[in-house]
Amino acid sequence: MAINTDKNVYTVVFAAVMVIVVGSLLAFMASGLKSRIQENERFEKQQNILYAMGVNENQDEGSVSFVPTDKVEAEFSKYIKEQIVIEGDDIVKDNEAYLIDMKKQLALYKKGETPKLPLFIGEKDGKKSYIIPMYGKGLWDAIWGFISLDEQMNVQGVYFDHKGETPGLGANIKQRYFMDDFTGESILDGTRYAGISVAKGNNDPLNETKDDNEVDALAGATITGNGVSAMIKESVNLYKDYLQTISAK
């Protein structure tokens, strides 16, 4: 008996069966691969944090290379001496602090609640680094990153990443030449907290002045650049009180 595939009932039944079959197939696969994917994301975070404090495998100019994934866990526990969570006036140690989602904490802060702020204290060649996770908006979608500060509140390094900035323009925030510009800048203007702005038309395109709180912007990526400035300002601002206790020492 040939099936009449033109009947409405058949069409509806076909669609329903297809959705159930495809849906269960995908659900089955997603739960099967979940643990591997989560592990990859965990490694990536560790790599990013280490990158910001200067632990990376950068060789030539221009390319960004992380610590390889098979070594990252060992390196992470070697260089990151302490992970703390700042919740209001409470400071607790938490070795899983790097898994805290900064997006949620920023949202809590904006609602007026107390966020749980992760901070990583690293040590390399006897120098301490305070690494702060950041989260913000670019032109199209989310941008995020890490900024590593020393005890004088100078930037040791940064790492930026993005979800969907324009390739060739905004996407260049994760290029070496942009990220390297931040190194050495101070987040303080005198003693006041100022952040670091991505500025165009500043008189210092080669970024020789390190105390002007400015780095040179990317051509054609004004909104992404503004997003980076706002992200640094907002995210680091949450840590202001804690950072003051460090620089006061």
Binding site: T5, T11, F14, A15, V19, A30, I37, F43
Partner: peptide
Amino acid sequence: IPSKIRIIVQLIVVATLVIVVDQVLKAFAY
């Protein structure tokens, strides 16, 4: 395949396969 919804069915097949590729890449070639 009911001819009325064949384009949708085709899209579902591509979309499913693409999600499979995407998830496998995420798990094994991040």
